[in-house]
Design a binder for these strands. Structure first.
Lengths: 138, 138
DNA sequence: TATGCTATTAATAACCATTATCAATAAGGA
DNA sequence: TCCTTATTGATAATGGTTATTAATAGCATA
């Protein structure tokens, strides 16, 4: 019923440290590449397992963005995210009064609603520049 | 450069009809089960292929909800969605002024933002009832 | 410091939603 | 009716993620 004791292994520590200093909302395999620089024999399964453990214990946020590979974030203060429509990169968007939503009491068939998430879409500077090149806009 | 002519096949028609009358935001395989009642030899690949074609041509909406199997909707008027945290079922939430977000000009590292989506989370009536049973709340 | 329990690991296989391949078929314009 | 080619069913392949398993290593306790 209760979860097992969480041990701090070298792998877990290195994974968490790298994620904390990355700020790029890496995917599991991007983090894998980074961690391998320091721990060459680490396994991709270990990355996934630890991201899951750290997500469950609240030390990491799993960004479950639409229909694509999951990304992870060690920045725990509340904020929104934008995803680039072209390359999938994710960036932070500060929360403001204008991006705050009032929860409806319930949905059409009586779902009880207790949270929400705003996902912005757009283009990162690089893809926006490319788009301007290839598109003829007066 | 331009997309090929879209033919109206029996399969495509049946898929669209079923999706239009389902209102449950079915996944591809749920729709597959429904369509097979009428076209027993239809292939799951055909379902996916048509959902893709119909999504591209704007006749269907693909609900790219977080981290789970894609769901589809033939209701094209703008509205939000709630997803049940326990069973994954999806329901409609009307758009209101309180659930409308003003787009930020740009993100922290200069992403240009041009759209957003609000996703609500909660519990469907069934799972909410079960939760009340198994939880001892004074 | 040594011991014992068990969470965690590396390696790898399995899983599962989705996409690609391809020969046969059928939509629909000429 | 004929012809072009979009579409189909069957099936293999892909790719992200999870499960399995024997070996290893945290860490609480003696």
């Amino acid at each position: 019923m209760n979860s097992p004791v969480q041990r701090m292994t070298r792998q877990r520590m290195v994974i968490l440290e790298h994620l904390r200093q990355m700020h790029s909302h890496p995917t599991a395999d991007e983090l894998y590449d980074a961690v391998r620089q320091e721990l060459p024999s680490v396994s991709l399964g270990t990355i996934y397992r630890n991201l899951d453990v750290l997500t469950r214990s609240g030390q990491v946020h799993k960004l479950e963005m639409c229909g694509v590979q999951a990304r992870f974030d060690a920045e725990l203060s509340p904020h929104h995210h934008v995803r680039c429509r072209d390359c999938g990169r994710v960036d932070d968007v500060p929360m403001t009064a204008e991006s705050t939503v009032t929860l409806p009491v319930e949905s059409k068939s009586g779902f009880q609603i207790d949270d929400y998430r705003v996902e912005f879409e757009g283009h990162c500077p690089e893809c926006a520049a490319q788009h301007r090149e290839t598109t003829s806009v007066g």
